[in-house]
């Protein structure tokens, strides 16, 4: 059992985004880190058809004593990591509450077929209204600066760990990144992770 403190039983993390953004990899990393810290953890991702550009949500339930069901109860999220703004708002609508902490990448991904996307400032305002503890992290922007949008999710992982809301640290995360990424990719991903930590410290 973990020696680290858990603020609530179970502690519920939600990662929301759009299929293709890499939420499955992200939730697997977080899950592996929590397991290594001695927690009981269940990680439920959206699979199948929705992976193709649909709205996707990963539910991560953390406990010191038991395994809970896969999906977060309505209104019971403790942290929402939003990879995309309207998806963050969607998750808040269902799982938000006055205490929820939100970390959000404000870069929109527009729905296909010309569906209207609301005004971004309006979305950001709605998010901040539903969570006074909202932090914006320009992850896609930073990833593009690094030369590839693929780093967006690892930057966000850095921000999530750097926000000190979960019982995991950079030290827990590093061996997991090392196991997953070979050679030069590891270097780039560690850089992305560090960038995320830096961004959240400033946010």
């Amino acid at each position: 059992m973990s020696r680290r403190r858990l603020r609530k039983e179970p502690f519920n993390l939600i990662i929301s985004g759009v299929g293709g953004q890499g939420n499955v990899l992200l939730s697997a990393f977080v899950g592996a880190a929590l397991l290594n810290e001695g927690f009981m953890v269940s990680v439920a991702d959206t699979f199948g058809v929705s992976q193709r550009g649909g709205s996707v949500t990963s539910h991560i339930k953390i406990s010191k004593k038991t395994l809970y069901s896969s999906v977060t109860l309505d209104g019971k999220a403790d942290v929402i990591l939003g990879m995309e703004p309207v998806e963050t708002l969607r998750a808040l609508g269902e799982f938000g509450n006055p205490h929820v902490v939100v970390i959000v990448n404000p870069r929109p991904i527009y729905p296909s077929g010309g569906a209207t996307y609301p005004d971004l400032d309006k979305v950001k305002r709605a998010i901040t209204k539903l969570s006074s503890k909202t932090k914006f992290v320009n992850a896609t922007e930073e990833a593009l600066k690094m030369g590839n949008p693929i780093y967006t999710n690892i930057i966000l992982l850095g921000s999530l760990v750097g926000a000190n809301v979960l019982p995991i640290t950079k030290e827990t995360m590093m061996p997991i990144l090392k196991e997953r990424f070979p050679g030069k990719l590891l270097e780039e991903n560690i850089k992305a992770f560090g960038k995320g930590m830096e961004l959240i410290a400033k946010a």
Binding site: G54, S55, L89, R90, L92, E94, G96, A115, A126, L130
Partner: peptide, 20 residues
Amino acid sequence: YDEEAKKAIQIVPDRPINMC
């Protein structure tokens, strides 16, 4: 909060699945 949340998500568009 529940009322506010339900109101806020009215602006959230559907996100139909798509081919990559």
